[in-house]
Design a protein around this nucleic acid. Sequence first.
DNA 1: ATAATACGTAACCAAATGGATACGCATCAT
DNA 2: ATGATGCGTATCCATTTGGTTACGTATTAT
Lengths: 106, 106
Amino acid sequence: MPQAEQDRSVFRAIADPTRRAILDRLRRGPAPVNELASAFSQSRPAISKHLRILRELNVVSEQRRGRQRVYRLEPAELKDVADWILPYRDFWQQSLGNLKSYLEDE
Amino acid sequence: MPQAEQDRSVFRAIADPTRRAILDRLRRGPAPVNELASAFSQSRPAISKHLRILRELNVVSEQRRGRQRVYRLEPAELKDVADWILPYRDFWQQSLGNLKSYLEDE
DNA sequence: ATAATACGTAACCAAATGGATACGCATCAT
DNA sequence: ATGATGCGTATCCATTTGGTTACGTATTAT
């Protein structure tokens, strides 16, 4: 689409597998950029760009410690995703229920 | 990135707001393409392309009824998203808990 | 003071994304 | 049989995305 999409939602942020992996890592505790970058076969600037996106959406926060920048998970914004996905849960549980009763009717 | 990303995950599928809106609509029941398309200020082919993406990821299914194609929500694949997001829930609940005890210590 | 370290940013680029229009093909109404 | 309806696909295009290398800046080590 040639239009200005400007979709800066957290859904876009977690669409990228590298960014999800970064978040998964930060769930185990804060980490400086070098440690995050060393886990991927990408250049460090690439990771910096991913971190910027996560930062601007307040999914992570940055704390400067000396020449390091320690990133920390700020999961509050991820709540939007959970709020969106959870209503669908009823559906697949219902589908499982249907399958169960179908099998029991055999 | 010039590489072949080939990231055909459901996370990409729900990154687009139009596709999320389509899924939200289908949660209220199956619908033919025209009804889905009329809800957006996009051309019908654009909606067809969104539906194709959702179809190929098995997030929706298609049933032909005469000249209509009725789309139905198949939420099983969305479980991956729920499984990914739910562990983060503990974090923001914990953050809320910390805030609560902080306030209570005042 | 100088070099090394830890990062961010700028500029650039190929591929992917998401839109539009034009067209084709069944299916239904007349 | 003929036209209208419902939908997918092909082609094209601007924008976005996500990578790279080169460079700049602040902090620490020597």
